[in-house]
């Protein structure tokens, strides 16, 4: 073994190594970024689903916002109460209790109830259908059933039932809101579980149209408003809007005169609806 070449090799390699290490050391000092260690700790207490339910792009952004004081600890709808408590402990604040929320599908117009307008041969998504002459059903406010909400759910909590309407798995639903954004007709809404009275229709059409479009549509007859009172139910564009703050928890429907059973308590909707009436 040639000693000279060995020494030269080691010296040159070692020299290069040392040189670059010194360069990296200088960079380490000059380019150092101060990172709050609490961010990583908060990240550890978040579900890590990156669903965007908090309104921020991903869990790491939410963790940074919490530590910076820009986001509420309860802002993550997916997190358990334990997780929220842990984060409260890290940040040294009182933990709040947030009421459980769920996604509610506010349309009863499935395949059995609605009348079709055309045969649709386009891209089978709700958005594409909705943009194509207002969809393949006569009612231009109702559910199209192509499942954009299903695709958008990161928790597998929503699926299209036999009747072509989305059904929510209340165990899995975390109220992250992705389905709300995905629905091009804003049929799905997130509500606290204490809200139990809903109008299961979004149609702004009057009676002379709804009798053609759907057997469960709200035709704007105002019977519910007359039954509950104007301070509890407001009519906007032929649709009742329930004022949940004023109404409180409801134990019976405000009227029995709703012709198509468009307004109802949430339990009653869990029973699958079969209609006797066929729409032509």
């Amino acid at each position: 073994m040639d000693l000279t070449s060995l020494v030269v090799s080691m010296a040159s390699m070692g020299g290069l190594g040392a040189l670059f290490a010194i360069g990296l050391a200088i960079a380490h000092v000059k380019l150092h970024v101060e990172v709050d260690p609490r961010i990583d700790m908060v990240m550890g207490e978040l579900p890590g689903a990156n669903c965007g339910g908090c309104g921020l792009p991903g869990c790491s952004a939410f963790a940074e916002a919490i530590v910076a004081g820009n986001a509420a600890i309860t802002g993550c709808p997916v997190n358990t109460q334990d997780g929220v408590d842990e984060i409260a402990g890290i940040m040294g604040v009182q933990a709040e209790v947030k009421e459980k929320e769920l996604a509610r599908v506010l349309c009863n117009g499935g395949n059995a109830e609605t009348a079709p307008k055309a045969i649709y041969k386009g891209i089978k998504t709700c958005l594409a259908a909705h943009l194509t002459f207002g969809g393949d059903k006569l009612c231009k406010y109702g559910c199209l059933g192509y499942g954009d909400c299903v695709v958008s759910c990161p928790f597998d909590a929503i699926y299209i039932g036999d009747n072509g309407l989305p059904l929510v798995d209340e165990e899995k639903c975390t109220a992250c809101g992705n389905c709300v954004t995905a629905c091009p007709r804003n049929i799905i809404e997130v509500h606290p579980v204490s809200h139990n009275l809903f109008v299961f229709c979004k149609s702004e059409d009057e009676a002379k149209y709804t009798k053609l479009t759907c057997t469960r549509a709200c035709n704007g007859c105002k019977a519910c408003q007359k039954g509950a009172g104007v301070e509890k139910i407001e009519m906007v564009n032929n649709l009742p809007r329930i004022n949940y703050e004023v109404y409180g928890v409801v134990d019976e429907v405000p009227t029995t005169k709703c012709r198509n059973n468009a307004i109802g308590l949430i339990e009653s909707v869990k029973v699958p609806v079969t209609t006797a009436q066929e729409n032509k």
Binding site: G17, F20, A21, L24, A25, A27, H28
Partner: peptide, 10 residues
């Protein structure tokens, strides 16, 4: 960690 990449490459 600062010299990780350089070390690996060598």
């Amino acid at each position: 960690s600062q010299v990780r990449i350089a070390g690996f490459i060598v």
